[in-house]
């Protein structure tokens, strides 16, 4: 318990004392929102995962592309 408390305090003190770090964390948060919410959800769906339900169908689709260029 004491160890967990020390680890929590270690991080919380560190975050409290940050100067430029606060700006950097804000940039990281905005970036993660843009990457993982905006881009990933709306633009970057995994074509094979989305269009096919199992690996056999995915393999057959890719082989079709390879053999009918």
């Amino acid at each position: 318990m004491n160890m967990i408390k020390r680890i929590v305090l270690f991080y919380s003190d560190g975050f409290k004392q940050m100067k430029v770090g606060k700006t950097l964390w804000l940039i990281i948060a905005i970036k993660f929102f843009l990457f993982f919410i905006l881009l990933k959800l709306f633009f970057f769906h995994d074509v094979l995962q989305t269009n096919f339900s199992n690996d056999t169908d995915r393999a057959n689709f890719v082989i079709k592309n390879l053999t009918n260029p």
Binding site: F43, R58, V62
Partner: peptide
């Protein structure tokens, strides 16, 4: 890695 799955799906699978 996003681009692999979306733009390069044949490559990504292979």
């Amino acid at each position: 890695e996003f681009e692999f799955g979306t733009n390069w799906s044949n490559y990504s699978w292979i």
